[in-house]
């Protein structure tokens, strides 16, 4: 089975917000980086991309043929997607275990595990 792991930063500090990031000790910062590296090197993982913070998002809709744009993400800033990866695993238990190792999950964010549609 293939799963996409959608990483929601929530209140987890990232280097994009230097003030909050600076509140982590140097050891903690290094641990976060090392953990993401270890995740990306786990067999079965296809690393995804990290997104710029949700404040940089523009949301687009079409209404009556007109393009409507709004500033910010589709969902609330706190709920917005921060990054993702794809994991090929035997079952959901394996995907949950990988998700639980993603730093965002323990630092105020959450990881959503979604099976990828296969036809």
């Amino acid at each position: 089975m293939k799963y996409m792991l959608l990483i929601h930063q929530g209140s987890a500090p990232t280097p994009y917000s230097p003030e909050e990031w600076a509140r982590l000790s140097e050891d903690e910062q290094q641990a976060v980086a090392a953990d993401y590296q270890a995740i990306n090197q786990t067999p079965g993982v296809s690393p995804g991309l990290q997104l710029q913070p949700p404040e940089s998002a523009t949301t687009v809709r079409m209404e009556d043929g007109r393009t409507l744009t709004t500033d910010g993400p589709f969902v609330a800033v706190k709920e917005a997607l921060g990054g993702y990866l794809v994991f090929e695993a035997d079952d959901l238990d394996a995907a949950i275990e990988l998700a639980s190792r993603i730093p965002a999950a323990r630092m105020g964010g959450a990881v959503e595990v979604r099976p990828i549609a296969e036809w």
Binding site: M1, Y3, A89, D90, D91, L92, D93, A95, V113, P115
Partner: peptide
């Protein structure tokens, strides 16, 4: 079925 919840004793 869709999420791949395994049929096993953990």
């Amino acid at each position: 079925k869709a999420a791949g919840i395994p049929f096993r004793v953990p």
